[in-house]
């Protein structure tokens, strides 16, 4: 049960312990955090199973791991390793230019990214049981996360106001199954939880995502690329819980040292969020 929590990227067992002690609800085990993947370039793949097992061995909270978009064998491997969730992630280099993984073929639950409601509903139709707005991972810049969250939830709000004929047009424009659009119009909400990811670096960023309607947050490079990861991690956990209480967000934001260095989106060579179809 991950709602109202923080999922943290970790690259080794020591970081995983820091994350658990700080109150993370889950960790994402990967070899390099997104900012390093961005810096190094080249092809980014699923992590070494040994490294994932090393992290699984030291924490009692759920462990997630990333497979490349469309790389169903990496997902099979992660399922065989017993990870708790597979993230079919745009942070890794896509393995398929047209198809995402058919996630219904798996027992392990999948997390997928989305930049807009159409993408979100397509991932749900493929069997994703958890969504995250993509943001732009490894930038320490929250602007894309806000754009994607607003786009997804703004369209959800509009669809709840649409009449039954308009829903067919929504389905066409979103490239999403009409059944899911109708279900959403009736219930007023996505059928799976929506978390926020990509560029969150401060307690205030986490509280911003929660106030905009995210149900949990992923923090990747933002913790372990900062000056004082243990303190920042705990502060982000507290800000995620007390997201609507500015005095608590202010209190936990004090004296955390430098956040990770941030990047302007316009200057990026690769935008991870554009990966996915």
């Amino acid at each position: 049960m991950l709602k109202g929590g923080v999922i943290m990227d970790v690259v080794n067992p020591e970081q995983a312990k820091v994350a658990e002690d700080a109150g993370a609800v889950a960790v994402m085990a990967l070899e390099r955090v997104p900012s390093d993947i961005r810096r190094d370039g080249g092809v980014a793949r699923m992590s070494d199973p040994e490294m994932i097992e090393g992290i699984k061995a030291v924490v009692t909270i759920p462990v997630m791991a990333k497979a490349r978009i469309g790389h169903f064998v990496e997902a099979q491997v992660l399922e065989a390793l017993g990870v708790d969730y597979v993230d079919e992630s745009e942070v890794l280099t896509p393995a398929d230019e047209a198809h995402h993984i058919d996630k219904w073929a798996f027992t392990v639950p999948f997390v997928c990214g989305a930049t807009n409601l159409g993408e979100a509903l397509r991932r749900i139709s493929e069997g994703a049981c958890l969504l995250r707005s993509k943001g732009e991972a490894g930038t320490g810049n929250v602007v894309e996360a806000v754009r994607h969250l607003r786009s997804i939830l703004g369209d959800v709000r509009k669809i709840t106001q649409a009449d039954s004929a308009e829903l067919y047009d929504w389905a066409k424009r979103l490239g999403a199954p009409i059944g899911l659009v109708q279900e959403l119009a009736e219930s007023g909400q996505l059928p799976v939880p929506l978390f926020c990811a990509g560029g969150l670096a401060t307690p205030a960023d986490a509280a911003l995502a929660m106030q905009l309607g995210a149900q949990s947050v992923f923090v990747g490079s933002g913790i372990f690329k900062s000056d004082d990861p243990a303190r920042r991690a705990k502060a982000i956990v507290e800000a995620t819980t007390h997201f609507s209480d500015a005095s608590i967000v202010a209190k936990v934001s004090r004296g955390l040292g430098a956040a990770m260095p941030g990047l302007e989106i316009d200057g990026l060579e690769t935008t991870f969020a554009d990966r996915g179809w």
Binding site: G5, D21, A24, T60, I61, K234, V237, E238
Partner: peptide, 15 residues
Amino acid sequence: PGGESTTMSMLLESA
């Protein structure tokens, strides 16, 4: 409620 007990016990203390 359900959730992560490690997370909630930390937050019970900090709050």
